[in-house]
Amino acid sequence: MDESTVASLRQQAEPLAALSSAHLTPATRHKLIGNDLSVNAYPTAYGGFVYVGSPRYDIPTEADLAAVFEVAEQAGVIWLKFDADGAIIDGLPVFDISGEAL
């Protein structure tokens, strides 16, 4: 493979953070899986990918997701991958099945 091709592709890379879907309320998780979020999202079998942008292209109407977007933008993260087995991020709320923050 030509090194310039590899370098060119690398320049197109965008930062992604993988985190637990427990950072979303059950209602927001349901919207993510149903492809019904207020921002661009791509559902998967266990969560989904959500586009933040750089700078953030929109503010989600879902308050829990908006809080994650705020931190993601400050961290330079352009994509979020929510997954049931993803990492719990210190400082972000964690919701149980009832939607209450733990």
Results as ranks from 00 to 15, higher is better:
59 I>Y: 03
56 R>K: 13
58 D>G: 03
52 V>A: 08
99 G>L: 09
64 D>N: 05
16 L>S: 01
13 A>F: 07
98 S>F: 13
86 G>W: 12
49 F>C: 02
47 G>E: 10
68 V>L: 05
17 A>D: 08
72 A>M: 10
26 P>M: 05
19 L>K: 06
68 V>C: 01
81 K>I: 05
21 S>K: 04
77 V>A: 12
35 N>V: 00
36 D>P: 08
69 F>S: 10
44 T>R: 09
88 I>H: 12
18 A>C: 11
37 L>E: 06
59 I>T: 15
87 A>M: 12
51 Y>N: 07
81 K>H: 15
93 P>T: 11
92 L>I: 11
87 A>S: 14
58 D>C: 09
73 E>I: 14
93 P>Q: 05
69 F>L: 12
96 D>I: 02
30 H>W: 14
60 P>I: 00
94 V>A: 00
42 Y>H: 07
58 D>P: 01
81 K>L: 15
16 L>P: 03
83 D>C: 04
66 A>Y: 00
42 Y>C: 06
72 A>L: 09
47 G>F: 04
21 S>F: 07
46 Y>G: 01
32 L>R: 09
17 A>S: 10
84 A>L: 07
23 H>C: 00
64 D>Y: 01
28 T>P: 09
97 I>R: 07
24 L>S: 07
67 A>Q: 13
69 F>H: 08
90 D>N: 15
47 G>V: 02
85 D>H: 12
68 V>H: 00
48 G>E: 04
37 L>W: 05
20 S>Y: 10
72 A>R: 04
96 D>Q: 13
33 I>A: 04
67 A>S: 13
93 P>L: 02
24 L>Q: 09
29 R>C: 13
43 P>E: 02
37 L>I: 03
48 G>P: 11
41 A>E: 08
32 L>C: 12
90 D>H: 09
40 N>Y: 06
60 P>F: 01
44 T>C: 02
64 D>K: 02
32 L>P: 13
76 G>S: 13
81 K>D: 13
92 L>W: 15
79 W>Y: 14
70 E>C: 05
99 G>Q: 10
48 G>D: 07
93 P>A: 02
81 K>A: 10
22 A>E: 04
